[in-house]
Amino acid sequence: MKGQILNRMTPYFFMAPAGIIMAIALIYPLGYMMYGSLLDWNPSQSIGEAEFVGLKNYVTLFYDPAFRESLGVTLTFAFFVVIAEMIIGVGLALLLDRNIRGMSVLRTLFILPMMIAPVVVGLMWRYMYHPSIGIFNRGLDAVGLEKVDWLGQNALLSVILADIWQWTPFIFILSLAALQSLPQSALEASRIDGATGWQQIIYIKLPMMLPILIVTALLRLIDAFKVLEVILVMTEGGPGLSTEILALRISRTATEFRELGVAAAMSNYLLILLMILTVSMFAFTRWQERRATRLAAAIQEDA
């Protein structure tokens, strides 16, 4: 009897260290943030001194136009950067997936931008966008075109361009790895059947890469929601709130406005948003896999 109980408990003993680490490293801080979001808490107080206000922070935020604007900016930013980066990154990978001389050097060069510290990227682009000494306006001026007010009238676009420059290599490198691990047999079969390059890309390469592309897009999306330093350095969220993405608003709420409870509630909104996106993306992949299995089964039955 005793042995039986011990046997049944064994797996839990083995799982215990992982469980404890999870509890300390994940659940505790998360719980702390959840609890913090229910408080009227400024950084000069310890968490015990802060006043409990229930869901007030969430309700206030829900009706706060600045928060809503910031959420809108975040969604616009994330949407455009991920789409643009996916198209350019996958496109580059398809172009460079071949054996030409110096390819390894070229690949290394392509991934350099994502290795640069975000603050440096921010500063670099800020100066490139500078109205009078920046390279873009000097270039435009040199060819006789009108100068552009990059960080003034077109701040969000400018920030999006900088992010695309920095993070397209991430999509590129993962897409390239996915391409190179595709089974050659399918590609050879299509070649024998006379498929053109475009047909190969559309009907074979892209569908086979899709699971990896979805995970890549998801990773980028999560990152795009959290980007902070580049925008902080480039525009500090301005002009107005036009580039104030949520991560920046959270940081300002905690440090400038000294409202830790509201900042925590904001982080929770962001977390919920990311959870919804992640779950729906995985649900979509699962649905696709099932559909593929069903189709395969139907084909087999037909055969």
Binding site: P239, G240, L241, R258
Partner: peptide, 21 residues
């Protein structure tokens, strides 16, 4: 005053809209 940070930030972002938009 303790709430100045928040009012200051709002003032600054709104004035920026005056200047750019």
């Amino acid at each position: 005053i303790p709430v100045w940070g928040k009012i200051n930030a709002d003032l600054g972002t709104t004035l920026s809209k005056v200047l750019t938009e």
